[in-house]
């Protein structure tokens, strides 16, 4: 029953976010601030992780290709498929659920604890629109970060494959171009956009409706990370079944 009540509250929160909009003059600066905090501020970690994961995927594929009949270009193919289909949209989103999600929950939760949200409500401000809407809009730019993740991941794979002596650059590029299905890119970005919405809203929900003090802010951040990850994993399965199945 608690889960159903939470899903109901979450749905109502999402509806409320789009009601009684804040003045555009103010909203514009809030959106730019959130793009900087949530997306631009995450690029460093996304690039770092993507590069090394791409490299590891390439090395592990190479080490498992023991049959001489299988072409070495498969390393490039496997790296591309792994990075584009799963690693960049899903794995990075789970990392973002930790980084961005815990930031969102703790910042909104702290505002709740220190009565800043009450202050907004008393003034007649739709606090959900003021706090959550800019985050949702900012996260629409998240696919750009994922595009960078895809590029850097594949680049990491190329670097590790070629300079590790597992295959030639030409083999890797040939593998990248083998059986390329453009819809896989669309699939990855559809997933990314949905995950972006989840990363913006579930942590906001846990921060906005939290009760208690500083300790509970920490607990809410942990809970929000767990639930955001769970929802991303489940939606990943459903979307894959629907779009590729």
């Amino acid at each position: 029953m608690n889960y159903l009540a939470s899903i109901g509250s979450y749905s109502m929160m999402v509806v409320e976010v789009f009601r009684k909009p804040t003045k555009w003059r103010i909203m514009k600066s809030l959106i730019l601030k959130e793009i900087d905090e949530l997306v631009y501020g995450s690029l460093g970690i996304i690039i770092f992780i993507s590069f090394f994961i791409g490299a590891v995927v390439a090395i592990q594929t190479a080490l498992n290709l023991t049959n001489p009949i299988i072409p070495r270009s498969l390393i490039g193919f496997a790296t591309r498929q792994s990075v584009i289909l799963e690693f960049a949209p899903t794995f990075v989103s789970i990392i973002m659920a930790g980084k961005v999600g815990s930031y969102i929950t703790s910042s909104i939760g702290t505002m709740r604890v220190t009565e800043q949200i009450d202050a907004l409500e008393v003034m007649g401000v739709n606090s959900l629109n003021y706090l959550v809407f800019p985050k949702i809009i900012a996260m629409l730019f998240y696919p750009f970060a994922i595009a960078i993740s895809m590029y850097v991941g594949i680049f990491g794979g190329w670097l590790a494959g070629v300079f590790g002596g597992f295959l030639t650059s030409a083999d890797f590029v040939a593998g990248l171009q083998t059986d390329f299905v453009p819809f896989h890119i669309a699939y990855a970005f559809i997933k990314t956009l949905i995950f972006a919405f989840i990363i913006a809203t579930i942590p906001s929900f846990h921060g906005f409706y939290m009760k208690g003090g500083a300790l509970e802010v920490g607990k809410a951040s942990t809970t929000s990370f767990v639930w955001t990850s769970v929802v991303i994993i489940i939606l990943n399965y459903i979307l894959t079944q629907l779009l590729l199945g």
Partner: peptide, 23 residues
């Protein structure tokens, strides 16, 4: 109505226990 409530709230000032200033 919701709009009237919103207008009325703009006629209210509140000083919270912990000040509740925006950090």
């Amino acid at each position: 109505s919701e709009n009237e409530k919103r207008n009325l709230r703009q006629e209210m000032g509140m000083v919270f226990q912990g000040s509740a200033l925006f950090d």
